[in-house]
Design a protein around this nucleic acid. Structure first.
Lengths: 187, 187
DNA sequence: CCAGATAAGTCAACATTACTGTCTTAAATC
DNA sequence: GATTTAAGACAGTAATGTTGACTTATCTGG
């Protein structure tokens, strides 16, 4: 990637710059080169689409959508999370979350409990049914990711994690670092 | 990633398996382990969200959405693409695409020309204004990806590409391989 | 202790992006 | 010439997001 080599689109003139792995300031606006940027856009689109698609079959048969899956995922990962914190993670409005959450509670996938220290809070947890559903969705995505990880190899998986971690904003990075401190160095 | 180490969730019992980089059959359903799968779900969600967000400010001031950006991207990358082929890439219905495409043509970002070999076709291209807009959107995403690539280093970027390529389905993989044959080996 | 801030929930209205099914027109192909 | 194909259009619906205004309960600081 960094090795100077034949450019795919010779038209796109640019300065040749080596990426720095050591955090040195380097604000060359032509990095990454056009062809690599285009490729990255394609990769992100298709990989995200098919990764999320993996769970859609299950969701559809239950009349749920991706928004429900996201809520189940983050509640499962953070049992007892407050509504505020969940809103902060998902970055959607209270209304959008409420619609999704009401369905999940009516159908018995999510339960609420008042906070013991602050009784205004409604701490969210998955019920047994919710955990089971989340597990099904989880496994359907593992079926897609497992082969990709295996074929790419552990070095590649490490790089995958490092780059994705670098793409997200500071708040999201802080969240994932807390969820899995080992990811900070790529494991 | 593959190294056997302390499990974050000791409850999730599983067989310990090394991933194979050589394509050997290995259909252990517990790979990757739960904690790594959870992390991957988080990473995909946040990285995709913030990668696409980067262009949203520009889109919003023009009254366009992400669907318009996707169309501009794939038309720019495949000048003269047919409507059918674009539908195949985006995997949306004709109606959904028509709505987006009509706006882009009305506003002068996309132009049509009848195919010379098959005059039923309407070959799509970006106008000068369309190419300029696509470039602005492109640069806003490069600003986000550039630092991530630089910090992660070229080995990591290679892994990022390999894993994302592995996640997408066969048709999408064939498409990206055609768009950039060097990506097949991770470059 | 009370005034103001905060957590959660709700109502109403609306936008974007997707979907379905049905239909037309023009051009290609068998 | 009959059938298929590429494109476009119409009508209706659904999922998911938005804004703004408002209520209720509870916490916290002066």
């Amino acid at each position: 990637m960094s090795e100077p080599k034949a450019e795919l689109h010779p038209s796109s003139a640019r300065a040749r710059v080596e990426p720095d792995q050591d955090g040195m300031a380097d604000d060359n606006p032509m990095f990454p080169p056009d062809a690599e940027m285009r490729m990255a856009q394609d990769l992100m689109f298709f990989a995200y689409r098919d990764f999320t698609n993996a769970a859609d079959v299950i969701l559809e048969e239950l009349g749920l959508g991706r928004a429900h899956h996201r809520a189940l995922h983050f509640i499962g990962r953070n049992p007892g999370i407050t509504v505020s914190d969940l809103l902060g993670i998902l970055r959607i409005t209270k209304q959008s979350l409420a619609r999704v959450l009401n369905v999940l509670m009516e159908q018995g996938y999510v339960a609420q409990a008042p906070g013991r220290s602050d009784r205004r809070q409604r701490l969210l947890t998955l019920t047994q049914a919710g955990a089971a559903l989340e597990r099904r969705l989880f496994e359907s995505q593992r079926e897609r990711l497992g082969p990709a990880y295996r074929r790419a190899g552990s070095t590649a998986v490490d790089g995958f994690r490092r780059v994705l971690r670098g793409i997200m904003d500071d708040a999201a990075r802080a969240y994932v670092d807390e969820a899995d401190p080992n990811s900070r160095t790529g494991r």
